[in-house]
């Protein structure tokens, strides 16, 4: 491996192959240099072949060791062991809660600077991100020998490498002390799948707030007509109308889709923090004084129970 290798960390890769977002992360790594991948479970041959096709020159695995029953710490300890073997100049992880925490601990272990929430990377390691709830764009970098970067979805498009080779597979042992002082996961309740796109991956989001009064039907029907994800304000998730994992905002998801349709949401600062970097914002609200209209490219003062169904029917009609 050359000194400029980039190590991309992927959490559990499914047997049938990496997720689209995992391939985007590999592509983000390729911006910086030749890529090796660390996979937290033992990947299938299909998965290794697809990673190779997307440019991975080496794949590191924890062998048959199971890292999934503990929170964060053993994964970071193992990743530090992979870094010691692969000697990368940078480590790229996904920007999920867990990804950022793995990055955090790895940073301490490696004496490496960590940049989170990266939306774009340059070949020299410059990272672009938004700060202060989307009000500033900054260029930042790690000044340490190794950089640790937590990268958001869409930072690069997943695509096969120009001249892919085969990837060598290496098992790196999980260090003996990795499980010391680690918190145990004692129960896990899987969330039901909705069949709609993930909030952070979707190019269109239709979000509802207190104005739905608990009835998300018009939101869901418009979302389905547009192939969109469904989002919500904290008022809607706090009321229990929809799961907290659908919350957009300061303490929910930060999203920047091509189109964000906000319905029955007033546009409080904590809600704006999660969506004001969207390309196009459409707002439907019965109160012309709602702050959401200050940031909407197209606003409708009206009843969402009338406007949304009419829009849904019209989209279906035009599509024939």
């Amino acid at each position: 491996m050359t000194a400029s290798t980039v190590l991309v960390y992927l959490d559990v890769v499914p047997a049938e192959g990496p997720h689209k977002t995992q391939l985007e992360l590999v592509a983000a790594g390729r911006i910086l240099g030749p890529v090796a991948v660390a996979v937290a479970n033992e990947p299938s041959e299909t998965a290794v072949a697809q990673l190779a096709e997307h440019g991975a020159e080496a794949v590191y695995t924890p062998g048959s060791a199971d890292l999934s029953d503990f929170l964060v710490a053993p994964k970071a300890a193992w990743l530090a062991a992979v870094v010691a073997t692969a000697q990368p100049a940078a480590v790229v992880v996904d920007n999920s809660f867990e990804g950022k925490e793995i990055a955090a601990r790895l940073g301490v272990r490696l004496s490496a600077g960590v940049v989170t929430d990266v939306v774009a990377l340059e070949a020299d390691g410059t990272a672009h991100k938004s700060v202060l709830a989307g009000s500033y764009e900054v260029r930042a970098r790690a000044t340490s020998q190794i950089a640790v970067l937590a990268v958001k979805g869409h930072a690069a498009e997943g695509a096969p490498a120009p001249a892919p080779g085969a990837a060598s597979v290496h098992a790196v042992e999980v260090p003996g002390d990795a499980f010391a002082n680690a918190a145990r996961i004692t129960a896990r309740a899987e969330r039901p799948k909705t069949g709609r796109p993930e909030l952070t991956e979707a190019s269109i989001i239709v979000a509802g707030g207190r104005g739905t009064d608990g009835d998300f039907t018009p939101i869901e029907e418009l979302a389905d007509a547009l192939g969109a994800a469904v989002g919500a304000s904290r008022a809607a998730t706090d009321a229990g109308w929809i799961g907290h994992d659908f919350q957009v905002g300061q303490t929910g998801k930060t999203v920047s889709p091509q189109l964000y349709i906000s319905a029955g949401i007033s546009g409080a600062i904590q809600q704006k923090a999660g969506m004001q970097t969207s390309k196009v914002i459409v707002a439907v609200n019965s109160d012309p004084e709602s702050p959401v209209f200050e940031i909407a490219d197209f606003g409708v003062v009206g009843d969402l129970f009338k406007v949304l169904p009419q829009a849904t029917e019209e989209i279906k009609r035009r599509r024939g």
């Binding site: 009000s135 970098r141 000044t143 209209f293 909407a296 490219d297 606003g299 409708v300 003062v301 406007v307």
Partner: peptide, 25 residues
């Protein structure tokens, strides 16, 4: 171990077209 090299305020979003529903919004 990190440095911010440049920070630019994002131009504030400005309101676009706002219409009032008259039955065809």
């Amino acid at each position: 171990l990190t440095s911010v090299e440049q920070a630019d305020p994002r131009p504030p979003r400005t309101a676009g077209t706002i219409i009032t529903d008259e039955g065809d919004a």
